[in-house]
Design a protein around this nucleic acid. Structure first.
Length: 889
RNA sequence: GGGUGGUUAGCUCAGCGGCAGAGCAUCGGCCUUACAAGCCGGAGGUCACAGGUUCGAGCCCUGUACCACCCACCA
């Protein structure tokens, strides 16, 4: 198959070059649309499907590290479950991001000296669409760059026709059910974006301001109430003054009236427990039109609502002589006017917290206006009940936060006064004034028959369409096979920062319209922070660009880094060093594979019965492979990404490379049946390890796979390796541990005595028992090679020469013969160091075992283990002491 | 004000009742025919603090300190 980069049995180039390798595989996966599930596939149809809808990136931006993490984790899951035989669907798509996108395009227009109003609605939207075509593709390329195994044939965009229809259907149904209503209400208003904002689109930030103390004279002339305010300019809209009903200073004044300065209106003094007696003077001015709490007080006490600010942040006609002034200007002028009248009691510095637009950072103004709302109380209650029974939120620490939010939720303001978005499907009859809420534009008014209908100007909050994403992308309101098969989706993988914006709302609308939750699990991953723990952002300039990292270190290095750091419930502090570090791991994999391929023929090695294979190292590595398979199969479905990555890292590097490959070298040199067996085990272990690595590092694993003898065309279609219970052998693994300990003991002596590695040593091992002797004898060749010996004596009775250094490893006495002089003091010091260590552990355990409470109450197996250990320690100590004696005399 | 998480080797972090771990950094020795982006070995810890539970506590409980973050409010 010429499409595939390498054919089986090829030699790998000396260095790993991610760029070349990756572009080949990207192109291949793309042209073949490898990751579109075949709904007709009988094998996969039997298993429970695995589906994910992508959190749609905004079309405004470039991929950042958060996306890279998000996409990597989803891809790891998708590839893993594909291996496990599940039918996997991962739906890609993009979000139109109403305000953000409109801002970007408007900024461009501004460069041409135009505003959107110069173009008009239609032409402006044309511009946005063109912009979308350009940048939507940008995001797509970046998703592809990461190697995400999405199904591009099912890509969706929140503004495409299908999804827009779903939006209209949902809107109309909620309206007819009385869950969407239109009303005058106080909302957050961004006077720069010129639109309403939802509560959670407002960011609070501290601001230095003043607290003005203003006298409000009592009507009866008996004095004045002094109120403290940060917003004197809104006083013109005051319709009451409030005090705490139990406040001894003021309670008797409730029901009286004060004269509102500058406006010359009489307003009542009301009593309400909401007032904090401790704050300021304990008297609160009430401006229902420009403050959320005042709005509530106004409703409760039946107060008038006088608006004094307009939607551009200027004083309106109600402000009398201040009309037309910007709010800051008005504030200064009013303060000055009060000062002149002697009504300004004092001004003090004050640290305030003010709302800002989360998109453009400008000040948010509470204003009363006509908006559309979703009545969320009942929807929220059901979304609450669904968790954790039908939908599990992980890590579970987020549960409480989720509940708390839903319990205190207010109606959701869904109308936005911008153009880019789903226009509200409501029309007003110009003749009779009837409001028509319909999925498609009506020709004429059904009541009066008039054709003069005008559609609402507003569009819907972006999150309204995203809230439908899990079912709208699958084809709803049509009854599609995808919807039937893949809803509810298996898991939603996203950052916790949009738990409320998005996750909770998907749950609400999913339950309402589908009758079932939209996903079984929600996995909330970390935020990616910089090395100092700050949030990465363009403005702070601390962002690490994933594409730059990909270019520099390769996609797999980046993916492995993100996976390895994705421990549940913790933020990731990322720095470039980390990625560079894991590039070393890629190189290690590459070179281990090169070595393997150099020893393998171009045809797959003839099979050997692995259950009966000779050779401790083979049995050990096969046993360990089984354990690694188990761990991976357990870790990934539990979203323990870091565990999966760490286990693979340690297995491949510290076991496969450091030990197994070294052990196998003599086999390869020996040739014959021994080499054949080694080739088969090597081939098997490498093959299966590549399969295990593939979900995390798809590119390099695919490239190596393709070069393996007998490789199938594409690793991404390969199944998770079947368990091989006959290869599990704990006893053999322990024996290997003993051999390793003996080798390490020799190496340590060599290093501590500064003996050059090039000098081959003579070593005497006094085995602890016959079994150990037999094993060590059998492994003589490996011991000789890895400890770099020229002679190995295995004899329990042999004497240790005075010219030697020694140690005890798992009960075996290791005696390294030395040719040159030895300083007895040095050797004694070495032995004493070991003895001290042994003694410490021995006495600790002995003390523990001496305690009858421990012996009685601890589980028998724990006690037995300690007993065995104590004996072993005692034995080792005796042996070391005996060895030490030869220097004493 | 309410809530959540964190405090373990120089750094970044795993571990969450039974021998304190990893990666990086560091120190010493090596171009040992896959890999110097490497190999071998070493050193490095009152597991924030104070109590408690337990035969046994980084691990469980209570409290304290500090650091993050989230929500609400701030007239």
């Amino acid at each position: 198959m010429s499409l595939f980069p390498l054919s089986g049995g090829a030699e790998l180039p000396k260095g790993y070059e991610p760029e070349k390798v990756e572009s080949r595989w990207r192109a291949l996966w793309e042209t073949r649309n490898f990751f579109a599930p075949d709904l007709q596939d009988p094998a996969r149809s039997r298993a429970e499907p695995f589906s994910i809808v992508i959190p749609p990136p905004n079309i405004t931006g470039n991929l950042h590290m958060g996306h890279a993490l998000n996409l990597t984790l989803q891809d790891v899951l998708c590839r893993h479950f594909r291996q496990r035989g599940r039918q996997v669907l991962w739906v890609p798509g993009e979000d139109h991001a109403g305000i953000a996108t409109q801002n970007v395009v408007e900024r461009r227009l501004a460069q041409e000296g135009k505003t959107r109003h110069d173009l008009g609605r239609e032409e402006f939207l044309g511009r946005v669409w063109r912009w979308k075509e350009e940048y939507g593709d940008n995001i797509r390329r970046q998703i592809k760059a990461l190697g995400a195994s999405v199904d591009w044939s099912r890509e969706r965009f929140t503004m495409d026709e299908g999804l827009s229809r779903a939006v209209r259907r949902v809107f109309v149904r909620l309206y007819n059910e009385g869950l969407i209503y239109k009303g005058r209400y106080i909302i957050n208003w961004c006077s720069r974006c010129h639109t309403a904002l939802a509560d959670d689109e407002v960011d609070f930030a501290p601001q230095k301001t003043s607290l003005w103390h203003i006298r409000y004279p009592l009507e009866d002339g008996s004095g004045a109430l002094i109120i403290a305010t940060t917003r004197p300019e809104t006083m013109l809209g005051d319709t009451a003054v409030a005090v705490h009903p139990e406040d001894g200073r003021y309670a008797r004044l409730i029901g009286k009236k004060v004269r509102l300065p500058l406006a010359d209106r009489l307003i009542p003094v009301i009593g309400d427990a909401y007032v904090d007696r401790e704050f300021g003077t304990g008297v609160l001015k009430v401006t229902p039109a420009h403050d959320f709490n005042d709005w509530n007080l106004g409703k409760k006490h039946g107060l008038d609502c006088i608006e004094v600010l307009d939607d551009a942040g200027r004083m309106n006609a109600n402000a009398g002589s201040f009309a037309g002034l910007a709010r800051e200007e008005a504030r200064a002028r009013i303060a000055a006017a009060l000062e002149n009248l002697g009504l300004l009691a004092k001004t003090e510095d004050y640290d305030n917290n003010v709302g800002h637009c989360y998109r453009c950072r400008s000040l948010v103004e509470p204003l009363v206006s006509e908006q559309w709302f979703v009545a969320v109380k009942t929807l929220a209650a059901r979304a609450r009940d669904a968790v954790p029974g039908e939908t599990r939120i992980l890590p579970e620490s987020w549960l409480k936060t989720y509940y708390l939010w839903l319990d205190n939720i207010r109606d959701w303001c869904i109308s936005r006064q911008i153009w880019w978005g789903h226009r509200i499907p409501a029309w007003t009859c110009g003749a009779c004034g009837k409001l028509l809420v319909l999925e498609e534009a009506p020709d004429r008014c059904p009541d009066c028959g008039h054709a003069a209908l005008s559609q609402e100007e507003d569009v819907l909050d972006t999150w309204f369409s995203s809230a439908l994403w899990p079912f709208s992308t699958l084809g709803w309101p049509e009854k599609t096979p995808e919807l039937e098969r893949f809803y509810p989706t298996s898991v939603l993988v996203t950052g916790f920062d949009i738990l409320f914006f998005w996750v909770a709302r998907m749950l609400m609308l999913g339950i309402h319209f589908m009758g079932r939750v939209p996903f079984r699990h929600v996995y909330l991953h970390a935020l990616v922070r910089d090395a100092q723990g700050r949030k990465m952002s363009k403005s702070t300039g601390n962002a690490i660009d994933p594409l730059e990292m990909i270019e520099k270190y390769g996609t797999d290095s980046l993916r492995f880094t993100l996976t390895a750091f994705a421990a549940m419930g913790r933020d990731i502090r990322l720095s470039e060093d980390r990625i560079e570090g894991y590039r070393h791991f890629m190189n290690k994999i590459w070179n281990a594979s090169r070595f393997s391929l150099l020893n393998l023929e171009s045809a797959p090695p003839p099979p050997v019965d692995l259950a009966r294979i000779e050779g401790l190292h083979h049995r050990w590595i096969l046993h360990r492979l089984e354990e690694v398979k188990d761990m991976q199969a357990a870790a990934l479905p539990e979203y323990r990404f870091n565990d999966a990555a760490q286990v693979l890292y340690a297995f491949l590097w510290s076991e496969f490379c450091d030990w197994y490959l070294e052990c196998v070298k003599p086999d390869m040199q020996a040739g014959g049946a021994r080499k054949d067996a080694a080739c088969f085990v090597l081939w098997t272990v490498l093959r299966e390890t590549l399969i295990l690595l593939h979900p995390i590092i798809p590119f390099i694993s695919s490239e190596i796979w393709a070069a393996l003898p007998g490789a199938t065309p594409d690793l991404s279609a390969e199944s998770f390796p079947a368990p091989r219970p006959e290869c599990r052998d704990t006893a053999q693994a322990a024996r290997m541990g003993m051999v390793q300990a003996a080798i390490v003991a020799v190496r340590t002596i060599r290093a501590e005595l500064n003996i050059t590695p090039s000098l081959r040593l003579t070593v005497l091992i006094r085995p602890r028992d016959e079994d150990a002797r037999a094993i060590l004898e059998e492994q003589r060749e490996i011991l000789m090679a890895l400890a770099r010996l020229d002679s190995l004596i295995l004899d329990p009775a042999a004497a240790a020469p005075r010219l030697s250094a020694s140690d005890v490893a798992q009960g075996n006495e290791i005696i390294v013969f030395l040719s040159g002089a030895i300083d007895p003091a040095v050797e004694i010091a070495r032995l004493d160091k070991g003895l001290i260590k042994l003694d410490k552990e021995h006495s600790r355990l002995a003390r523990k075992l001496a305690d009858p409470n421990y012996r009685e109450r601890a589980p028998a197996e724990v006690v037995d283990k300690d007993r065995a250990r104590v004996e072993e320690l005692a034995l080792a100590r005796d042996k070391l002491l005996a060895l030490r004696k030869r220097f004493a005399g």
